[in-house]
Amino acid sequence: MKLKRKYITGFLLVLGFFVVVAISGCASTTDIADRSGAELWGNNCASCHNIRPPQTLTDAQWEVAGIHMRTRANLTGVETNKIIEFLKTAN
């Protein structure tokens, strides 16, 4: 039980540190609605995996893959459409 408390305390301390770092960076962030497709692509996709170059899929495939990733990564409809449009333009 002592070990569990130690882990929880350690985790919360680390977490607290990153929350402070994150909140301190909040002031400079742009509204999500104002972010470009390229920015949303970099921010959302790279949170979990390497960014896949636009050329890896066709325009039609990006439309299908985009909805799949919208569900997986909890993207809004607007974010998804902007990312898909960016990938199609860059293709």
Binding site: C26, T29, T30, D31, I32, A33, T71, N74, L75, T76, E79
Partner: peptide
Amino acid sequence: LRGAVPIKGSK
């Protein structure tokens, strides 16, 4: 049921 709601720069 799932989704996301943007709040200014956060979500």
